[in-house]
Amino acid sequence: MAHLEVQPRKKSSMWIWLIIGLLIVAVILFFLMRSNNKDQSVIATTDTIASTSKPIVAADPDWNNVNFNAPDTQYEEVTGKGIVVRSNDQYTIYSLGENILFATDKSTLEGDADSQLKQIAASLNKRFPHAQIGVYGHADAKGTSDHNSQLAAERAAAVKIWLIQHGDVAENKISVHSLGETKPLADNNNAAGRQQNRSVEIVAFPGK
């Protein structure tokens, strides 16, 4: 009987197929990662375009930090005695401190208020047609602080109503603020000073 010698299977062929398989997996992973990077790049580009295409919205006015001692400004349309115009690069202030707009402890406009407010309204519409308008009410130091704060708010509201009804200023552009007796325009220790403190200041905030 012939003796058959069985040769063991060579292991080298297994290693070749294993290497080929690993190369195939590596190629597949490479293309998957490349495709994912492209998707991320598209998303990032889209986000950048979206963020840069958003409209720039002006910040709301900081009504609590108005500097009422801003430098004086001259507007040719404002000629009324006692109207002082001040401005900086953020807002313009129309002060009616020397005009007697209100009687003691009253919030009803009186005296020469109409003619003075007409000049201010005309200036607002000419120079700041799209501005936000803040009306600040003042009171003299007589009475309690709470009472004067309420009275000043009522005076500012009276001017707001006038600007809407007679000054052609849109209601949604006007806000009312009370300074009460906290920022007097003149000396509260004499009658003339207290008269000046029964007044308002109108601030136009154009934004950017």
Score class of each variant (00 low, 15 high):
Met1Ala: 10
Ala2Phe: 10
Leu4Tyr: 08
Pro8Val: 05
Arg9Tyr: 05
Lys11Ile: 07
Ser12Arg: 09
Trp15Pro: 03
Trp15Glu: 10
Leu18Cys: 12
Leu18Val: 14
Ile20Trp: 08
Ile20Val: 13
Gly21Ile: 06
Leu22Gln: 08
Ile24Thr: 14
Val25Pro: 04
Ala26Arg: 05
Val27Lys: 09
Ile28Ser: 10
Ile28Leu: 10
Leu29Thr: 06
Phe31Arg: 08
Phe31Trp: 09
Phe31Glu: 09
Gln40His: 08
Thr46Met: 06
Thr48Tyr: 15
Ile56Gln: 14
Ile56Ser: 15
Val57Arg: 13
Ala59Gly: 13
Asp60Glu: 15
Pro61Lys: 05
Asp62Gly: 11
Asn64Gln: 14
Asn67Asp: 15
Asn69Arg: 15
Asn69Cys: 14
Ala70Tyr: 08
Ala70Asp: 12
Thr73Phe: 12
Thr73Trp: 07
Gln74Met: 13
Tyr75Glu: 13
Val78Trp: 03
Val78Phe: 05
Lys81Asn: 14
Lys81Asp: 15
Gly82Ile: 06
Ile83Ala: 06
Arg86Pro: 10
Ser87Leu: 03
Thr92Arg: 01
Tyr94Ile: 02
Tyr94Met: 02
Ser95Met: 04
Leu96Pro: 03
Glu98His: 11
Glu98Trp: 08
Glu98Ser: 14
Ile100Ala: 15
Phe102Glu: 01
Ala103Tyr: 09
Lys106His: 15
Ser107Asp: 12
Leu109Ser: 00
Asp112Gln: 10
Ala113Met: 02
Ala113Cys: 02
Asp114Trp: 00
Ser115Ala: 09
Ser115Cys: 04
Leu117Tyr: 00
Lys118Met: 01
Ala121Met: 03
Ser123Ala: 15
Ser123Asn: 15
Asn125Met: 05
Asn125Ser: 08
Asn125Pro: 06
Asn125Asp: 10
Arg127Asn: 14
Pro129Glu: 02
His130Cys: 07
Gln132Glu: 14
Val135Glu: 01
Tyr136Pro: 05
Asp146Asn: 09
Ser149Thr: 12
Gln150Leu: 08
Glu154Tyr: 03
Ala158Met: 12
Val159Gly: 00
Gln165Cys: 07
Asp168Gly: 04
Ala170Glu: 15
Ala170Leu: 13
Glu171Phe: 08
Asn172Leu: 09
Asn172Pro: 12
Ile174Ala: 00
Ser175Tyr: 02
Val176Tyr: 00
Ser178Phe: 00
Leu179Thr: 01
Thr182Asn: 11
Thr182His: 07
Asp187Ile: 05
Asn188Gln: 05
Asn188His: 04
Asn189Gly: 14
Asn189Pro: 10
Ala192Tyr: 04
Ala192Met: 04
Gly193Ser: 01
Arg198Cys: 03
Val200Trp: 01
Glu201Ser: 15
